[in-house]
Structure formats: structure tokens, C-alpha cells
Amino acid sequence: MGLNNEYNLLVFNSTHHALAAEGILQKQGYKIMMVPVLAEITADCGMAIRVNTKDNPLEILRENKIEIAGYYQVIKDKLEKRIIRLKK
């Protein structure tokens, strides 16, 4: 278990959004992890949230009016890492 080799990644337009989203998702009982945005997605120093692939956090974020910049699926396997954009 854990959000290491396969997870979905929420990317935000601002750190404030990331922090607000963290609070909301944690309150709702989601298993999440605050991480820096992967360098392959953007070179700036943003914050992102890893969520379980089985969870769907988009609805709750929308209800709370938190905008996301992107939603990605990340799969790591030894030397290979795949980052697939799921939604804008």
C-alpha cells in the first residue's frame, strides 16, 4: 500500500489551492500525500497531492470551488515512469 508506485496526482495553480485541497481531502478521510510537483510536469516549485487511484477527489474539490491545474495518473516501474494526463 502507500502512494509510491502508482497514484493519481493533483496539480494546482497556486500553493494556496494545494493547501486548501489538502485540508478538505484529509477531512473527508482521503489517504493523500503532499509532494512537490514532478519536474516533468512543470519546472516551477509547485505543490501537488498524491491520491489513491481508486479515489475520485475531483467532485469534492469542485464542490469546494478549488481549481486544479491538472490531474495525472503516475505509474512507476523500476526504470520506467509514466505520467498520463487524465483531465485538465
Partner: peptide, 24 residues
């Protein structure tokens, strides 16, 4: 290209956005 990278024992990261692909 990913297959080639693996054959050469490289570390490869794919960023996929629709039909646009970026491989590091």
C-alpha cells in the same frame, strides 16, 4: 522509443497529454 531506452538500460519518464508525448 521507450523500448529503445529500456534496451539501452536508460531511465525513462513519459509525460502523456492527449496525443503529445514527452520522454525524459
Amino acid at each position: 522509443v521507450m523500448k529503445l531506452a529500456k534496451k539501452l538500460n536508460c531511465q525513462v519518464t513519459l509525460l502523456e497529454d492527449g496525443n503529445e508525448y514527452q520522454l525524459t
